[in-house]
Design a binder for these strands. Sequence first.
DNA 1: TTGTACGCGTTATCAA
DNA 2: TTGATAACGCGTACAA
Lengths: 340, 340
Amino acid sequence: MKKNDQITIHDIARALEIDSSTVSRALNNSSRVSEKTKKRILEKAHALGYQRNSLASNLRTNKTNTIGVIVPRISRNFFSNIISGIEDAAYQEGYNVVICQSLESFDREKKIMETLLANRVDGILLSTSMETLSLDHLKPYLTHGGPIVFYDRPCDFENCSSITINDYKGSFKATEHLILNGCKDIVYFSGPETVALYQNRKKGYVDALAKHNITYRSDYCMSSNLSENEGIRLAEQMLKLPQVDGLFSSNDTAAIGAMKYLKNQGVSVPNDIAVVGFNNHPISSVIEPSLTTINQPDFIMGQLASSMLIRQIKQGDIGVSKETEILDVELIIRNSSQKL
Amino acid sequence: MKKNDQITIHDIARALEIDSSTVSRALNNSSRVSEKTKKRILEKAHALGYQRNSLASNLRTNKTNTIGVIVPRISRNFFSNIISGIEDAAYQEGYNVVICQSLESFDREKKIMETLLANRVDGILLSTSMETLSLDHLKPYLTHGGPIVFYDRPCDFENCSSITINDYKGSFKATEHLILNGCKDIVYFSGPETVALYQNRKKGYVDALAKHNITYRSDYCMSSNLSENEGIRLAEQMLKLPQVDGLFSSNDTAAIGAMKYLKNQGVSVPNDIAVVGFNNHPISSVIEPSLTTINQPDFIMGQLASSMLIRQIKQGDIGVSKETEILDVELIIRNSSQKL
DNA sequence: TTGTACGCGTTATCAA
DNA sequence: TTGATAACGCGTACAA
């Protein structure tokens, strides 16, 4: 377990009585080395147990072949599917992926940005934390690092591209679905309204009500961090309202908490209160009644974000034009929303 | 978005008409620099927008302050909880974490090992892929890199420590629980029996039967990759057996697939067939009937693995003695296993 | 096709 | 307390 026995290209060169630059070229499969010496070098490298030092190589070339991913929380099913998509595309392009969790903390996000810049990743995929209100902490990376592409949580910053899902439309569809199923008094669970994504979702809810001539009442709109416990708490609060026949939660987790509470209280879903969630979390198909929800193309979003970023990295400084891709969503109708 | 405008310690040195080595010392908060010049340097560094280049530093010091984590699949709840634990402990020690997915592929695992070695991570946390039968691909890293600690999936290799959960005991408890609830003909869903972890779980099942004088029948033991679909398939197969009154699945996912199938076929859980799973997956508490299962301390296992590895990294070559920690598990009794 | 010579940005060593 | 110099391992412009 000593660390001093590193074999370098110079060791190979010495053993073969050639120059290290030739070894370097051979190991990078350059065409400027004869097949014969290339073969000799590769054999000797293997025999000596040579292991390339990417640190040195990256320092020299000023590239790391690595993209950084900042994700609010890995353990959320939605994000781990995105990560799988990101890795899938990156892997095919020969890029490594470094994953960092902000845990929804702005301070951690800032620190991560510094670390990624210090480690000279070639580009960054970013879904901002819920605490992130200003994006100034991205400037050093954009100046000295590389491109940043936002995913999932929409942001508008300098020339950064973004790829998100159509939160507005999903929310609109979900709300309208409840209305078409006879709901008139629909409670809405919102996330933090400082976050653009939740502003969009709320707008979808409001506009769907408006389209069907239902008055928006602010006490029917409840904000939280959308955890399961908050879902329970808000459901309790909801039952205190004069009339409620529908609930649209802007994520499944809170919807599930609410459903558990309602079941507990003997309130029938969907007959007393119809429920629609957002995310298509695996639990939504298992819970009883199964939860109507909005499916987002998470894996695909990851793939697209990854390849968009890598394309921009390869383009270099020139021609990086701001792209904005918005992916379509799908209403998945199950049992929680259809009154008998 | 140009990359040539990197400010280095030399730029700072030049601006201040001092030597770059002093700048380096100041930036590393060395005590061998006067407070006065330290302050001047830090201010100038900030003014110029200096961003440390870790690549160069790591190359020079031959340390990266980074640990690599190889995980079969991030999107499995169990593993993402482990990762959270790993990051939590690493973060506190000031280490960065690089997460890589093998996707249960031996080839990818091999490739990842090479990448991590090339990038000179200081140590590796490894949960081997299901395809991994030989561990020879770890040798280069152990020779030229640093320590490896196995987590979750037990492995015995050279002087590598490991931290796992007590699969045998969990499995024994689960099986005995079924027996004590009146089951005599208990089907067992095993994972690939080439994997040590599943060997241990199987042994727990077999021994529990033996303790209660129930004959083990090999046709009651069914192997698969334990996906939900495999759970469905095996459940179908299970119903063809002469007598079955219990099912112990070595993970929740397959148990859930089976429960869905049984419900579909009008077989009552737990009255006709009692079911116990393994993992305490979030779905297990939501499905109806709720699933009795084995809870594993995933987050804690991650924390422990992380701090064990970092301790070994700090110790260096000397004194790395092989440690083997086995964490206890807990039977969580719910409704799927208690006959009325 | 191969060799020479130097630089990437940082830090360790030695001397002042 | 600071400076001068070399070295980490690799890649590349240039020359041969």
